[in-house]
C-alpha cells in the first residue's frame, strides 16, 4: 500500500481494505477486493481499467453513491463507510461534484436551472442560487447561455454546464466518469484542461476512464484489475510532474 506509506497525515479521502461483494445467484462476486487508497487535496488522479475491472464500483464508493461491504472510507476525517443514505446524499451534495459521460443534465430545465439543482438540495435561497449558478457558468465560459435548454447546446457546452453544476456547491472533490467519452478530441482536451485548472485550485479531481491516453494527462494513475489496484503511477513521486505550479502540459508516458 504505497499511498498509505507516503502520507502519514490525514488524507482527504482514505480507503482502507475496502471490499465490495455482490451476490449473484448464490455466486459471490468481488467487485472490489481489499483496496486501500489515499487521495490528497488538490490531486489530479485518474482511475483506469477495462470494463468489469471494478473501476465503476470504486468510483461509486469514492463518490459516496454506494457503501462498501467491508473496510473503511474516511472523507475529510469523517468515517462514511456506514453512513446512512441520507448522510451520503448530504456528502454528495456538499463535498463531491459529479461529471458524467452523458452529461446527465435535466432536459426540461434550462442551463441556469440545471446548475442551480445541487443548491436546491443544499437549501440555498433563490437569489443566492442564481448568483452562484451564474458565477459557475461564467467560470466555464457559458455566462451567455443561461436560458438555453441542454439540447440547444453542443456536447462540449453541455459538459461544461455539467462541470459548472459539479462546481457550484464548491466541493472538495470532482469525480468525472469518462467525461470526454462523448466528445471529440479537441473538445475533450478543453474539458481536461478545465479539470487541470480545478485541481490547481486545490480540488481533488478524480478522472475515471478506460482510455490510457486520457489517463495519461493526470500525474497520478491508478489501474484497477479484477477488483484490485494492479498498478499505480505517480509522476510527482518521480519528480516528473510540476502541476499545481503552472499550466504545463502533462508529461506522463
Amino acid at each position: 500500500m504505497p499511498a498509505a506509506d507516503i502520507d502519514t497525515a490525514m488524507a482527504l479521502l482514505e480507503l482502507r481494505n475496502v471490499s465490495k461483494i455482490y451476490h449473484l445467484g448464490g455466486e459471490e462476486i468481488r467487485a472490489l477486493d481489499d483496496v486501500s487508497l489515499d487521495l490528497e487535496q488538490g490531486e489530479f488522479v485518474s482511475i483506469i481499467g477495462p470494463s468489469g475491472s471494478g473501476k465503476s464500483t470504486l468510483m461509486h464508493i469514492l463518490g459516496c453513491l454506494d457503501s462498501p461491504t467491508r473496510g473503511n472510507v474516511t472523507l475529510a476525517g469523517t468515517e462514511i463507510a456506514r453512513a446512512s443514505a441520507r448522510e451520503l446524499a448530504r456528502v454528495r451534495n456538499r463535498t463531491i461534484g459529479f461529471v458524467f459521460q452523458f452529461f446527465n443534465l435535466l432536459p426540461k430545465l434550462n442551463v441556469l436551472q440545471n446548475v442551480e439543482l445541487p443548491m436546491i438540495y443544499a437549501g440555498i435561497g433563490g437569489r443566492e442560487r442564481r448568483e452562484r449558478a451564474g458565477k459557475a457558468l461564467e467560470m466555464v465560459e457559458l455566462g451567455h447561455r443561461l436560458k438555453n435548454r441542454p439540447n440547444q447546446l453542443s456536447g462540449g457546452q453541455q459538459q461544461r454546464v455539467a462541470i459548472a453544476r459539479a462546481l457550484v456547491n464548491n466541493p472538495k472533490i470532482i469525480l468525472a466518469d469518462e467525461p470526454t467519452g462523448n466528445l471529440d478530441t479537441h473538445t475533450g482536451e478543453l474539458i481536461l484542461s478545465l479539470f487541470r485548472r480545478l485541481a490547481a485550485e486545490g480540488r481533488t479531481v478524480i478522472l475515471v476512464t478506460h482510455n490510457p491516453e486520457i489517463a495519461a494527462v493526470t500525474p497520478r494513475q491508478i489501474e484497477i484489475r479484477n477488483g484490485r489496484i494492479a498498478h499505480q503511477v505517480d509522476a510527482r513521486l518521480a519528480g516528473l510532474d510540476r502541476s499545481g505550479g503552472g499550466d504545463l502540459p502533462p508529461s506522463a508516458p
Binding site: E141, L192, S193, R203, I214, D247
Partner: peptide, 24 residues
Amino acid sequence: SLELPRIPISGMTLPEPPSMPDLP
C-alpha cells in the same frame, strides 16, 4: 502524449482558488 492547448478559459475568467465561495 496529449498536448493540451491553452484555452482562453485559463487565466481569463477563473478567479483565485477557491473559485466558488463557500456554500452557506
